[in-house]
């Protein structure tokens, strides 16, 4: 009749300890997700781009930045546009696209400008997004 190992009634206490620990873990996780489900309003992505560093490199100046999404919805195909503006004139325009900027996460990227940005203004912003 029996096709495989049977589970016996009497189990070592360590099996119960492991089982209870695991159950508490899983229940805690369910509670957390349920709390998030109950409180989470499905808002739109909130994309913020901040420049973190500038350094001269081969082929120009590398401008590092972080794009963070503080919203509760992920964004896909996010182009980050950088403008190098001197005396009110756009001298250079650079763009890089992120496949994903997940909800409540941040991604790092770099734009490379050929012109020396000293004395000029660098404007970085996310130009748009689509739903994943």
């Amino acid at each position: 009749m029996s096709k495989g190992p049977t589970t016996e009634t009497r189990a070592h206490w360590i099996e119960w300890a492991t089982g209870l620990t695991a159950t508490i873990l899983v229940v805690a996780m369910i509670g957390w997700v349920a709390y998030d489900a109950a409180t989470g309003t499905h808002a739109e992505p909130e994309l913020v781009v901040t420049i973190t560093a500038q350094r001269p490199a081969a082929g120009g100046t590398q401008v590092s930045f972080t794009i963070s999404n503080t919203g509760k919805r992920s964004a896909a195909g996010v182009p980050v546009t950088g403008l190098l503006v001197r005396d009110g004139i756009v001298k250079e325009r650079r763009e890089v696209t992120f496949d994903y900027v997940p909800a409540q996460s941040h991604e790092d990227g770099v734009l490379i400008f050929t012109e020396d940005p000293s004395g000029a203004q660098i404007d970085l912003h996310a130009s748009g997004y689509r739903d994943p």
Partner: peptide, 28 residues
């Protein structure tokens, strides 16, 4: 084939707590 059968006197939730839940925690 190879499935585990419960003895008749074992309540179902025993196996759930002792095997399935730890198994899921391990998978996570």
């Amino acid at each position: 084939k190879g499935g585990h059968e419960l003895s008749d006197d074992v309540p179902r939730w025993h196996a759930l707590i002792r095997f399935t839940m730890p198994g899921y925690a391990i998978a996570l």
